[in-house]
């Protein structure tokens, strides 16, 4: 095994250890109710410091409305990814291939 490979493996192990150690130490302390850290940490700390998070200007966080908005957002982002992805990776590749053929005189 080369020195470079050993160094890469050591860096990888160090990164994994750095990532999972705080979680291992934290284990069992969390509420386990899957509240997002935006709410469970940021808004909770703000509340401790006497600041209350205000509802957003357009409040979609009501019942299943947020679920609907997330679904629509996901569909639009997925559609844009597909449409633009085709433009870049399919049509772009075809046009590059055509240009290369013209240059090669084929």
């Amino acid at each position: 095994m080369s020195l470079r490979r050993i160094a890469t493996v050591l860096v990888f192990v160090a990164v994994v250890a750095a990532a999972v150690t705080p979680t291992a130490l934290h284990r069992g302390k969390g509420a386990g109710d899957y509240v997002g850290i935006d709410e469970s940490i940021m808004e909770a700390r703000a509340q401790e410091a006497g600041r209350e998070a205000r509802p957003p200007f357009i409040n979609t966080d009501q019942g299943d409305l947020l679920l609907f908005v997330f679904t629509v957002g996901g569909l639009l982002a997925g559609g844009a990814l597909g449409y633009l992805g085709r433009m870049v990776f399919v049509e772009g590749a075809t046009s590059r291939e055509r240009t290369r053929s013209m240059v090669d005189g084929r």
């Binding site: 997002g36 844009a80 633009l84």
Partner: peptide
């Protein structure tokens, strides 16, 4: 546009971390 749609979707996606019992983006 592709990267915009990706960043929008990725940064909005709540991913659960079971060992910590929490969710983050």
């Amino acid at each position: 546009g592709i990267m915009g749609a990706s960043v929008f979707a990725i940064s909005l996606m709540p991913i659960p971390v079971p060992v910590a019992g929490s969710v983050s983006h």
